[in-house]
C-alpha cells in the first residue's frame, strides 16, 4: 500500500476511534505454542440433510460426474458429497427442494429404466439418465427442474472438489502447468460489523 494512502486510511480510522490511553503499558503477552489439527484429521461429518438413499445416489453421481483425474482427487476423495450435505442443510428451501427432487428423480429413473438403485448403476446405465438432463448453457437456469439440478450439481461438485483441502494438497505437489488449479484469493474480513 502506498505510504500516502496508508497514512490517509490510518488518519481516517484514528478520527473515528475512541481514544484508549492507559496510564501503564500492559505486560507483554507471551504467545502460547499449542499446535492444533483440522476437523477432518480426527472426525467425520454427520449427515444432516440428505436421506440415506439420496446420499447414496449423490455419491454415485459424484463419482461419475467428477472422478479423480490425472492424479488429482475427484469428488469422492474431496468429500464433496459430505460437504454438499452440510451446504444444503443451511441453504434456502428452494435450493433444498431442487436438490432433493433432483436426486429423487435420478433414483426414480434408475428404478424405472433398470429396476436398480441409482447407486448400483453402471457408468453406461447412468449415462442414459444423465444425457437427457444435460442442455446447452444459458445465463438463466434451464426451466426443467431436473435439468436445472444436474446443471448445478455438475458445477457444485467441481467447485467443492477443486476447493477442497485434498485437492489443494495434490495440486501443490504437482509441478505440471495447467494441473490442479485451486481456489485462493484475498479474503475480506468482517469490517467493523454492526452490533445486531
Amino acid at each position: 500500500m502506498p505510504i500516502q494512502r496508508r497514512r490517509f486510511v490510518q488518519a481516517v480510522a484514528a478520527a473515528s476511534a475512541a481514544p484508549a490511553l492507559l496510564a501503564q503499558p500492559p505486560a507483554p503477552i507471551v504467545p502460547l505454542k499449542i499446535s492444533t489439527i483440522a476437523p477432518d484429521q480426527a472426525s467425520e461429518p454427520v449427515l444432516k440433510f440428505f436421506t440415506a438413499v439420496q446420499f447414496a445416489t449423490l455419491r454415485h453421481a459424484a463419482a461419475l460426474l467428477q472422478p479423480a483425474y490425472n492424479n488429482l482427487p475427484g469428488a469422492i476423495e474431496a468429500e464433496a458429497p459430505e460437504f454438499l450435505d452440510f451446504l444444503l442443510a443451511v441453504s434456502p428451501p428452494t435450493r433444498q427442494t431442487l436438490y432433493s427432487n433432483g436426486l429423487n428423480h435420478l433414483a426414480g429413473e434408475a428404478k424405472r429404466l433398470f429396476s436398480k438403485d441409482f447407486a448400483a448403476l453402471s457408468a453406461e446405465e447412468a449415462d442414459r439418465i444423465f444425457k437427457p438432463l444435460i442442455v446447452p448453457w444459458t445465463f438463466n437456469p434451464p426451466p426443467n427442474p431436473h435439468q436445472h439440478f444436474l446443471t448445478d450439481l455438475r458445477a457444485d461438485l467441481r467447485t467443492a472438489t477443486t476447493n477442497s483441502a485434498p485437492y489443494a494438497a495434490a495440486a501443490a505437489s504437482s509441478s505440471r502447468r495447467g494441473r490442479g488449479r485451486t481456489g485462493a484469493g484475498l479474503y475480506w474480513l468482517p469490517i467493523d460489523p454492526t452490533r445486531r
Binding site: 480510522a13 476447493n163 485437492y167 489443494a168 481456489g183 485462493a184 484475498l186
Partner: peptide
C-alpha cells in the same frame, strides 16, 4: 454510512478450503 476499510488489516490471503 459505513466504516473505513484498512486495505492491509482487513484483507488476508486464504485458500478456498
Amino acid at each position: 454510512a459505513g466504516p473505513v476499510a484498512d486495505l492491509e488489516r482487513d484483507r488476508v490471503n486464504k485458500s478456498a478450503h
